[in-house]
Amino acid sequence: STHNELEKNRRAHLRLCLERLKVLIPLGPDCTRHTTLGLLNKAKAHIKKLE
């Protein structure tokens, strides 16, 4: 159905954006896999440090 396709595309776009963010944020050497929340929290902390 159309709704399923739209949802699939939305999730794919979100995944792509999170992958791009992961490249930009210093995550530390001990981190190989992150939850979305963990990645967003690290991004928030990094932005605050830059301010």
Rank of each mutant, 00 (worst) to 15 (best):
G38S: 10
R15K: 13
R20M: 00
L14E: 02
R15I: 02
L40H: 00
H13M: 09
R15C: 01
L39G: 01
L18A: 07
G38N: 07
P29K: 15
A43L: 04
V23A: 15
R33F: 09
L39N: 00
L24W: 14
I47N: 02
T35F: 14
N41D: 06
L40N: 03
K8Y: 03
L50C: 07
A43W: 06
A45C: 07
T35W: 14
K49F: 11
K48G: 04
I25G: 07
L14A: 08
R33V: 06
I25T: 03
E7L: 10
D30I: 13
A45H: 09
R10C: 10
L14R: 04
P26K: 15
K49H: 00
L40P: 00
T32H: 09
G28L: 09
T2G: 02
K48F: 10
L14G: 07
L16D: 11
R20L: 00
R10S: 08
K42P: 01
T32C: 14
V23P: 08
N41W: 01
L37C: 07
I47K: 01
C31W: 14
C31N: 14
I25D: 01
L16R: 13
H3I: 06
H3R: 09
R15S: 08
K48T: 01
L27C: 03
K8N: 06
K48R: 07
L21S: 00
I47M: 07
E51R: 15
K8I: 04
T36Y: 06
P29H: 14
L6A: 09
N9S: 04
K48A: 02
A43Y: 00
L24H: 09
C17M: 13
S1C: 08
N41C: 07
R11P: 10
V23N: 15
P26I: 00
R20K: 13
L6G: 14
K8Q: 04
E7P: 13
T2S: 05
L50G: 06
L39D: 00
L50K: 06
L37S: 12
L6S: 13
L37Y: 09
G38C: 08
T35A: 14
T36K: 10
P26M: 12
L16A: 11
I25K: 00
P26T: 15
T36P: 10
D30R: 14
K22Y: 00
N41A: 08
R10Y: 09
A43Q: 01
L37H: 05
R11G: 11
D30K: 14
G28P: 11
A43R: 01
C17N: 04
A45M: 07
C31H: 15
A12T: 13
K42R: 10
N4F: 01
L24E: 01
P26C: 09
S1M: 01
A45Y: 09
G28R: 13
L6P: 15
L6K: 10
T2F: 03
A43T: 06
K49Q: 02
V23S: 15
R11Q: 07
E5F: 04
R33P: 08
K22V: 00
D30V: 14
G38W: 07
I47A: 03
R10D: 03
E51C: 14
T35K: 14
L50P: 06
T2K: 11
A45V: 11
L21T: 01
N4E: 09
G28M: 12
H46I: 07
L14Y: 13
L37E: 06
K8L: 08
H13Q: 10
A45S: 07
E5S: 08
V23W: 12
A45N: 11
T32Y: 09
R15F: 07
N4M: 07
L27F: 11
A43C: 09
K8A: 05
E7R: 09
L50A: 03
K48P: 02
R15N: 01
P29Y: 14
K22T: 01
L40A: 03
T36Q: 08
E51K: 15
I47F: 14
T36W: 14
K42L: 02
V23M: 12
R20T: 05
R10Q: 08
S1I: 02
H34M: 10
E51F: 15
C17P: 08
T32N: 05
L18P: 03
N41P: 05
R10E: 01
E19M: 02
N4T: 13
K42W: 08
L18F: 11
A12Y: 00
C17Q: 02
H3P: 12
G38M: 13
A45F: 06
P26E: 09
C17S: 02
D30G: 14
T2Q: 13
A43N: 03
E19C: 03
G28A: 07
K49S: 07
L18I: 06
L39C: 03
D30T: 13
H46A: 13
H46M: 13
E19Y: 01
K49N: 03
I47L: 12
H46G: 13
L39M: 08
G28E: 05
A45D: 03
H34W: 12
L14Q: 04
E51H: 15
L6M: 07
R20P: 01
R20S: 03
S1K: 11
R20I: 00
R33M: 05
H46T: 13
L24G: 04
V23F: 08
T2P: 06
R11C: 07
L37T: 12
I47Q: 00
K8T: 05
I25S: 05
H34C: 10
E19G: 06
E7M: 09
L24K: 06
L21N: 00
N41G: 11
L21Y: 01
K44E: 03
S1D: 04
T35G: 11
G38K: 12
V23L: 13
V23E: 13
V23I: 08
R11M: 07
L40G: 02
R33K: 10
K22R: 09
L50F: 14
E7I: 04
R11V: 04
L40Q: 00
L50R: 04
T32E: 06
R15D: 01
N9K: 13
T35R: 14
L6W: 03
K22F: 01
K49V: 03
A43D: 02
K44W: 05
C31A: 13
H3M: 13
L18K: 04
L39I: 10
H3C: 12
D30N: 14
H13R: 12
R33S: 05
L18M: 05
S1G: 08
H13Y: 11
D30Y: 11
L50S: 04
D30H: 12
R11Y: 11
A12W: 08
K48Q: 04
L39A: 02
I25H: 01
R10K: 15
L50D: 05
R10A: 12
L39K: 00
L6H: 15
N4Q: 12
R20V: 01
G28K: 15
L37P: 02
T36C: 13
L21P: 00
S1Y: 05
H3T: 11
L21M: 05
G28C: 09
D30M: 13
L37K: 12
C31V: 13
L6Q: 14
L14P: 10
E7D: 08
V23R: 15
H3A: 10
T35N: 12
A45K: 11
I47S: 02
L50I: 03
D30W: 12
N41V: 02
T35P: 10
H13I: 04
L18C: 03
K42V: 03
